[in-house]
């Protein structure tokens, strides 16, 4: 176990090292800090003197070591646009993204487990087939398109008059397909509660929660089909195993077998895959936040790109890289703990 631990952690450090080199190379290649610091009136000799003083003429390696040293101490430079430390800007935007991810994860967990289990227990039922069909279509719909459709339906509203209004059923169908709209589709609202530090939360007011609905549903929609398919596949495999057949032979009730014995072993691989997927959700938050103008990390990153705010781009890469590496390593370690049959030496084939 110790060897496994050391191997995983050293690998995580190596990946972080590579990310920091890439991030630094971007900073080195794209940004000229001098242009941001001094005006046009400064002469070439003075510029050269400042360059020398700032150490911009040092070899790549020396500059990288300085960058890495500062980064370890939590200094990733100042954002050009916000004129304050890049990490501070990120800390301000992080809570919005976290709340979005938490909301979406809750939706995914509470929908995918029952649907996946149902589809595994009754694979032939029309409802299972319906869910599987919907999830095939769902995988083909990009997250930003789901978001746009949701905005049209529930924020702007749709009036339907396809059916003859003078008949009772026609009016009923028209009413059925007509949506009210009215749900907010822009930002987080004004009614935020200050928790601690930079965390302004929208989880405690009705306005904040209303703003969360559409973004969370959109973000959940992209992962939900994956999880339903995964849980169904795992559960079907578990239901074939000997210990389940033994439990059946013993005469245990179907509910006990399905939900106590089978579900436990189904969730093990699901949790590990889920851990990795939650990291991947960061990529989708960029898209969701763009559609809803959600003031989180993703939108901040895109704005930093349009503004060529290099230190902020670099800081975002480092922070997101860290989030990915930490989640992946933790998931690996937890999996190693719960499932001791995993190869301790890693992936030597």
């Amino acid at each position: 176990m110790l060897a496994f631990l050391v191997q995983r952690i050293s690998q995580a450090l190596l990946v972080m090292f590579v990310i920091s080199i890439i991030a630094f190379a971007i900073q080195d290649g794209l940004g000229d800090p001098l242009q941001e610091m001094v005006g046009m009136s400064v002469s070439a000799e003075e510029r050269e003197a400042i360059r020398e003083e700032l150490g911009l003429n040092d070899p790549f390696l020396v500059q990288y070591l300085r960058f890495a040293g500062n980064a370890i101490q939590g200094d990733l430079g100042n954002s050009y646009f916000y004129s304050k430390p890049a990490l501070e800007v990120i800390a301000e935007h992080l809570p919005a993204t976290l709340e979005l991810v938490i909301g979406a994860s809750l939706i995914i967990i509470f929908l995918s487990v029952p649907i996946g289990v149902y589809a595994a227990i009754r694979p032939q039922a029309w409802l299972s087939k319906f869910f599987m069909g919907v999830s095939t279509v769902g995988i083909s719909i990009p997250v930003f398109l789901t978001a746009i459709v949701l905005i049209q339906l529930f924020s702007i509203g749709v009036t339907v008059n396809w059916f003859p209004a003078d008949t009772g059923w026609g009016q009923w169908l028209n009413d059925f397909f007509t949506t009210e709209g009215g749900l907010p589709s822009y930002g987080r609202g004004d009614d935020l509660v200050h928790l601690f530090g930079t965390w302004e939360s929208g989880l405690f007011t009705s306005e904040g929660l209303a703003h969360l609905v559409l973004p969370c549903v959109s973000l959940a929609s992209i992962m939900l089909p994956l999880f339903i398919r995964l849980i169904r596949a795992e559960m079907m495999e578990v239901l074939q195993s000997d210990y389940i057949r033994y439990a059946r032979a013993k005469g245990l009730s179907a509910g006990r077998i399905n939900f106590l014995h089978a579900l436990k072993n189904t969730m093990l691989p699901v949790i590990t895959v889920g851990g990795v997927q939650i990291g991947i959700m960061v990529a989708y938050t960029i898209l969701t936040e763009t559609v809803f103008q959600w003031p989180g990390l993703g939108l901040m990153f895109l704005e930093a790109i349009t503004r060529s705010d290099i230190p902020l781009i670099v800081a975002y890469l480092m922070v997101v890289g860290l989030i990915f590496v930490v989640t992946n390593t933790l998931v690996d370690l937890i999996y190693g703990l719960v499932n001791p049959t995993v190869k301790l030496t890693g992936k030597k084939a």
């Binding site: 794209l30 990291g279 990529a283 290099i310």
Partner: peptide, 17 residues
């Protein structure tokens, strides 16, 4: 592990910048 979309967004962002 970084998801292909994330890699594509970052590379695209750097190229655009």
């Amino acid at each position: 592990s970084f998801s292909t979309l994330m890699v594509a967004i970052i590379v695209g962002a750097v190229f655009k910048a």
